[in-house]
């Protein structure tokens, strides 16, 4: 079933000032329930503007946004706030929004705004803490005493605690070391598998998305350039490169092999398929896992 749809979504910043800029230009996307979608594009391609429309933080200049079949801006304000609990949005560098005295209170901020009872809040705080892989011993600490990566996880837990149908994350791995990045991304993947919720992951790094997503939305200059399965997107690797996007290292290796005259596929983006492809070529077509 379709959970998110936009129709001709357009957004202009600073209308009537010398700084007017079209950030989104007639965007049509559709996301099915339970799907893991990667949103990719260069800085300034409109990724962040797009996702801010999906939970009614930004109002479209033109066009419509539907969540769960309902048009967000034809409804009253109370219903729009409900949407924010249905579509959980984790902004870039979410650790800068922490404000409470303890980690527990900070994660509980969202559920409290939902007016849930104490027992339910407590369950959600502990559950989302588990999802981001933090021990319960940190619950009474001040969030400001934690490390950068830990703060980020607490902030993500704060949104997961809303138990949204759709979880959107804007560059959740930005500025983390490779270990921290893998950790966060695998936590998000586990969350997606376990809860069956829809996940939108925004990134400018293909590597972050390729291993996890079912489909990819590629954005450039405020428009959607591609919206296809991961395999289909990687078959057009040359177009991605032309857009200034970085493709995974392993894909580059196979494109180079092809250029050197080897008859290999180039839509390869995981180490596992790469291994299989090489082995099958070495053994002359007989696949051997």
């Amino acid at each position: 079933m379709e959970i998110i749809r936009t129709e001709n979504l357009t957004h202009r910043y600073g209308i009537g000032t010398p700084f007017e800029k079209t950030a989104l230009d007639g965007v049509n996307i559709s996301v099915r329930e339970g799907e893991y979608v990667g949103v990719i594009g260069q800085t300034g391609s409109g990724k962040s503007t797009l996702i801010s429309h999906l939970n009614a933080i930004l109002k479209p200049t033109e066009g419509k946004v539907f969540v769960d079949g309902a048009d967000l801006w034809s409804e009253n304000k109370a219903r729009r706030i409900e949407t924010r609990f249905k579509v959980g949005l984790v902004f870039q560098y979410p650790e800068y929004q922490l404000f409470e005295e303890t980690v527990y209170k900070d994660i509980a901020f969202g559920p409290k705004n939902m007016k849930l009872d104490e027992a339910e809040i407590d369950r959600r705080v502990r559950e989302s803490l588990r999802f981001v892989g933090m021990g319960e011993d940190c619950l009474d600490k001040s969030p400001f005493d934690l490390s950068g990566g830990q703060k980020r996880r607490i902030a993500i837990a704060g949104v997961m605690a809303l138990e949204p149908k759709v979880l959107i994350l804007d560059e959740p791995a930005a500025g983390l070391d490779p270990k921290g990045r893998d950790e966060i991304l695998s936590r998000i993947r586990d969350y997606h598998k376990e809860t069956g919720s829809t996940v939108l992951l925004v990134s400018h790094s293909m590597e972050d998305i390729a291993n996890n997503a079912d489909s990819i939305i590629v954005m450039e200059g405020g428009r959607v350039r591609m919206h296809e399965t991961v395999d289909a997107v990687f078959e057009r690797a040359d177009e991605l490169i032309a857009m200034g996007l970085d493709i995974p290292q392993i894909t580059k290796v196979f494109i180079d092999l092809r250029e050197k005259g080897y008859d290999v596929r180039t839509d390869i983006y995981t180490i596992e398929t790469a291994k299989r492809e090489i082995l099958s070529k070495l053994t002359g077509g007989a696949s051997r896992d």
Binding site: R84, G88, F109, V159
Partner: peptide, 10 residues
């Protein structure tokens, strides 16, 4: 940004 982030948490 902070206002948006807190709005997103209801």
């Amino acid at each position: 940004k902070i206002i948006s982030a807190q709005k997103a948490r209801g």
